[in-house]
């Protein structure tokens, strides 16, 4: 439950850092990135270019996407090197079916 107006800090200020993480932007997505681990060379281009910090990397390996925050812009698929193309953008609805 979100805070009521009496509890919300006044002035519209945000008192803690990194609070954008709490705001889920995944629902904005129309196209969803699908990742093929067998093709990935861990070049980190997708990680660098993702404007939403939605590429998850652990111990130097690209392991997938934070779909709570990925807006489906497709920059990762675009930047993935031509010879690799480990990321494809698919229609969210079609993928569900």
């Amino acid at each position: 439950m979100k805070k009521g107006w009496k509890e919300t800090p006044i002035r519209g200020i945000i008192l803690e850092a990194g609070s954008a993480h709490e705001y889920s932007t995944g629902g904005w997505r129309k196209l969803k990135p699908v990742f093929d681990r067998t093709k990935c060379i861990d070049c980190m281009f997708c990680w660098v270019f993702c404007p939403d910090s939605a590429v998850i990397v652990e111990k130097g390996k690209m392991i997938g996407f934070d779909l709570e925050h990925c807006k489906g812009c497709g920059i990762c698929a675009m930047e993935c090197p031509d010879k690799v193309k480990a990321i494809t953008m698919v229609e969210e609805e079609k993928e569900k079916k």
């Binding site: 979100k2 805070k3 107006w5 919300t8 006044i10 519209g12 200020i13 945000i14 008192l15 850092a17």
Partner: peptide, 23 residues
């Protein structure tokens, strides 16, 4: 105490700020 001033407040929080202002 790093603080953000003038951040966006979308439909889920804008109205609380305005209610405070009215108060």
């Amino acid at each position: 105490h790093p603080t953000t001033y003038g951040a966006v407040a979308l439909p889920d929080s804008y109205m609380e700020a305005r209610r405070q202002q009215a108060e």
